[in-house]
């Protein structure tokens, strides 16, 4: 039982990371039909850029973090939208999806060649101690991840539901044509979702890298689990992505503890297959009417 609680907390913590990535993924999907196959690399890269800024510029950690994060949001939020999505989307959704695969290769191999092929330690803003709760040793870092990730998600929910800008963004996601008629600056709203996606990736990256180290190949698993989270939760829903992320994180953590560490990856995959077989619209998704 004591162990179980520790695994549960660890699972919620990684789940929150997957949720951040999955939320960004669904937002971008909703507003621009972009299936971003580089989503995992989006979470991998900010940490690398931060370390690169510290190393190359010899900057202190806080400045390096600022530069790395700003550069990432500029390039992979705004730049991604303007230079990859915009010119590509007129050819259709399929070429765009393939372009994101190309992007994922560039990001991954670029991080390997341009920075390091080895895992690098990443500074943590919380000490790596454990505290005792009901006899279970719980990592402070895990608790910090949960606190920050949930704060960000609630902030996002508040922004989307509670502010004018957020509601305009939501309207754009649901029906761009109508939104345009209502005078909402659709293009700017789409750009905003890409910036938010990049920002969420930054948060996820900064949270997870102190624990799992910064490595060029980190994106593979994170990306895969973000996709699974999005599908498990319901492909079109931000709330679904949150629930899906948590479920995948907990399942993953339990699998690592109770199944086998070499096959921990396989358990969420099985979850994906079960969902597609039994409830393809996702746990929180609505069934689509039209059949082909």
């Amino acid at each position: 039982m004591v162990e179980f609680i520790a695994y549960l907390i660890a699972g919620i913590a990684t789940g929150a990371i997957y949720a951040l990535a999955a939320i960004g993924f669904t937002l971008v999907w909703q507003t621009s039909q972009t299936i971003n196959f580089a989503q995992g690399e989006f979470v991998m890269l900010p940490a690398i850029l931060v370390l690169l800024a510290i190393k190359v510029l010899g900057a202190p950690v806080w400045l390096g973090a600022l530069i790395g994060i700003a550069a990432f949001i500029l390039i992979f939020g705004v730049g991604f939208k303007l230079f990859v999505v915009d010119p590509m989307i007129r050819h259709g959704v399929l070429p765009l999806a393939i372009a994101t695969m190309a992007l994922s290769i560039i990001m991954k191999e670029g991080a390997k060649d341009g920075f390091s092929a080895e895992a690098q330690t990443f500074p943590s803003f919380v000490p790596s101690q454990t505290i005792q709760v009901f006899g279970a040793s719980i990592s402070l870092q895990h608790l910090a991840i949960i606190a920050v990730a949930f704060a960000v998600i609630f902030l996002l929910q508040w922004f989307v539901g509670g502010t004018r800008l957020g509601r305009q963004m939501q309207a754009t996601a649901q029906n761009p044509t109508v939104a345009r008629i209502l005078g909402i600056p659709v293009e700017r709203m789409v750009l905003l979702t890409f910036a938010i996606n990049a920002a969420l990736a930054v948060v996820a990256s900064v949270l997870i890298s102190p624990i799992y180290l910064a490595k060029f190949s980190n994106g593979e698993v994170i990306g895969l689990f973000a996709f699974i989270a999005a599908i498990v939760g319901g492909f079109n829903q931000v709330r679904g992505a949150l629930v899906g992320g948590l479920i995948v994180g907990i399942v993953d953590s339990m699998a690592a503890a109770y199944v086998s560490s070499s096959y921990r990856l396989a358990v969420p995959l099985v979850l994906l297959v079960v969902i597609i077989l039994l409830k393809p619209e996702g746990l929180m998704g609505r069934k689509e009417e039209r059949r082909v």
Partner: peptide, 16 residues
């Protein structure tokens, strides 16, 4: 379900 689900299923299969 949907054609693009194949992408995710094959992604999972690939990892497995």
């Amino acid at each position: 379900v949907k054609a693009h689900y194949l992408a995710f299923v094959t992604l999972a299969f690939s990892t497995l």
